[in-house]
C-alpha cells in the first residue's frame, strides 16, 4: 500500500478532551518549521466541518464526552479519527478516575492510535500518514 495522490490537501481538526497539553503542543510542534507537516498540505483548521482527520487527545472527561460526539458528527464523511497519546488510547495514568468516560474508542470509533506520553512529533506525523492511507481506501470504496 502506498500513498497515492489524494485529490486534496489533508486538513485536520484538533479536539482536546481533557489532555494535559503535552500531546497538544507536540501536535503544534509537528506543524511548525522543525517538522513542518504543512509542507505536505496538512493544515490545522478551525472547524470540524472542514476537516478530513480528527486529532483527539486526552482521556475524555465526562464533560467533554458529548462535545466529542458532536464534533465527530459534524465532521463530513469520509473521515478518519486519530487518538493521540496514551491517555486517549487506554486511559494511561488517569485510568481509574471517577470523571472519565474514555478512552476515546469507547466514545467514537478510532482508526489510528499513536502511542507515547506525549508521542514525539515524528510519531504523530507517522500516524497522519496512516490516516491518509485509510482515507484513500475510504475514498476508493465510495
Amino acid at each position: 500500500m502506498s500513498i497515492k495522490d489524494l485529490n486534496r490537501s489533508l486538513w485536520v481538526f484538533h479536539v482536546n478532551t481533557g489532555s494535559c497539553n503535552g500531546c497538544d503542543i507536540e501536535i503544534v510542534a509537528a506543524l511548525t518549521p522543525r517538522y513542518d507537516a504543512e509542507r505536505f498540505g496538512v493544515k490545522l483548521v478551525g472547524t470540524p466541518r472542514h476537516a478530513d482527520v480528527l486529532l483527539v487527545t486526552g482521556p475524555v472527561t465526562k464533560d467533554m464526552k458529548d462535545k466529542l460526539k458532536r464534533v465527530y458528527d459534524q465532521t463530513p464523511d469520509p473521515k478518519v479519527v486519530m487518538s493521540i497519546g496514551n491517555c486517549g488510547n487506554s486511559g494511561g495514568c488517569f485510568y481509574e478516575s471517577y470523571n472519565i468516560d474514555g478512552p476515546i474508542d469507547k466514545v467514537v470509533p478510532v482508526d489510528v492510535y499513536v502511542a507515547g506520553c506525549p508521542p514525539r512529533p515524528e510519531a504523530i506525523i507517522d500516524g497522519v500518514v496512516k490516516a491518509w492511507k485509510k482515507l484513500e481506501d475510504l475514498e476508493a470504496k465510495k
Binding site: 481533557g18 472527561t61 488517569f94 478516575s97
Partner: peptide, 25 residues
C-alpha cells in the same frame, strides 16, 4: 471543569513514587 480528571483523588490511592508520574501529567 472540562479538563477535570480527578488527579488529587487518584493521588490518595497511589504511593508517592507513583504520584510523581501523575503530578507530571
Amino acid at each position: 471543569s472540562q479538563v477535570h480528571r480527578g488527579v488529587e483523588w487518584m493521588g490518595t490511592r497511589r504511593n508517592p513514587i507513583q504520584i510523581m508520574f501523575l503530578a507530571e501529567r
